[in-house]
């Protein structure tokens, strides 16, 4: 199977409280914070690797192309996925500030038409903007089937269809999706038995979480190809559908704590003071 995994870098989510707003209120700044792959995208890379290998025989079965849109430094983030085992990368250079969900979805559509993957596998959302929009927009633009918030995948018909489980508020929805398709993944896609591909024995248990790159993988990654092109060269419309006129930080929390004597008092305060319900 040929899988395209879009990957975004985000500023260190463990230090999100250090994000600031620029003096003019026009942008969110993350100076001094480390860039990391968006965790959900990293899960998508891991799921793609699991779909395209026989883990028992250490065999690779298909091709995984990782793409990202952003400044030239983003190549480093792509390289990290290549170290984990993806085959090659595509970097579309663009100014970070000019990117919002619609622009990204249109650019990805152009990449999909160029690369013709069987599956686009991506994080359900990025942890910086938290928009949770690109996967859905991309499926709509392509006219492809879509499954979002996917927590497990098993292939059937030799990979032509995917049986997926989606975790939603009401429970778990089971869907059968025919490829080519767009699938966005949730945290549990990297649990030990979340991906079954018919090649790795069903009894195989992966370690929880995305795999560590091997030292060999890291060294090989520097030789793998990353095609670079500029956003206009894709020919997709780069006009943002939404603009952000102003950013403000939420007011600082007071951090106060009140102890109550009874459950009744708590319910009363939640209802009448905090107006929680």
């Amino acid at each position: 199977m040929k899988i395209l995994v879009p990957l975004k870098r985000v500023c260190d989510p463990d230090n999100a409280n250090k994000v600031k707003v620029s003096g003019d209120g026009k942008a969110v700044t993350s100076e001094g914070l480390e860039w990391k792959p968006n965790p959900f995208d990293e899960y998508a890379v891991e799921a793609a690797l699991r779909l395209n290998e026989n883990a028992a025989k250490n065999e690779k079965l298909g091709e995984i192309v990782v793409c990202s849109i952003g400044v030239a430094d983003v190549a480093q983030t792509i390289r990290q996925a290549l170290a984990m085992g993806a085959d090659r990368g595509i970097l579309v250079t663009a100014d970070d500030g000019a990117l919002e969900s619609t622009v990204v979805a249109r650019a990805l559509k152009a990449l999909v038409e160029k690369e013709k993957p069987d599956l686009v596998l991506m994080g359900k959302q990025t942890v910086d903007g938290d928009s949770n929009a690109v996967g859905q927009m991309l499926a709509e633009m392509l006219g492809w089937p879509m499954a979002t918030f996917v927590a497990s995948i098993s292939t059937s018909d030799g990979g032509k269809s995917l049986n997926v489980k989606r975790e939603v508020d009401m429970g778990v929805v089971t869907l059968k999706v025919t490829t080519p398709a767009v699938v966005t993944v949730d945290l549990r896609i990297v649990s030990p038995e979340a991906v079954k591909n018919g090649a790795t024995p069903d009894s195989h248990k992966y370690n929880e979480g995305p795999r560590y790159a091997s030292l060999k993988g890291i060294m090989q990654a520097k030789k793998k190809k990353i095609d670079q092109l500029e956003l206009p060269a894709l020919g997709s419309d780069a006009t943002p559908a939404t603009t952000y006129p102003r950013f403000e930080l939420p007011p600082a929390r007071s951090g106060s704590c009140t102890f109550v004597e009874s459950v009744d008092a708590l319910v009363d305060k939640l209802k009448n003071q905090a107006k929680a319900f």
């Binding site: 480093q76 390289r79 990290q80 170290a83 560590y212 790159a213 890291i218 060294m219 990654a221 520097k222």
Partner: peptide, 17 residues
């Protein structure tokens, strides 16, 4: 060298476990 940065990052990831 960039690959050594990646080696550092991979080792740091192991601190999770």
């Amino acid at each position: 060298r960039p690959e050594l940065k990646e080696v550092r990052r991979q080792i740091r990831l192991m601190a999770r476990e």
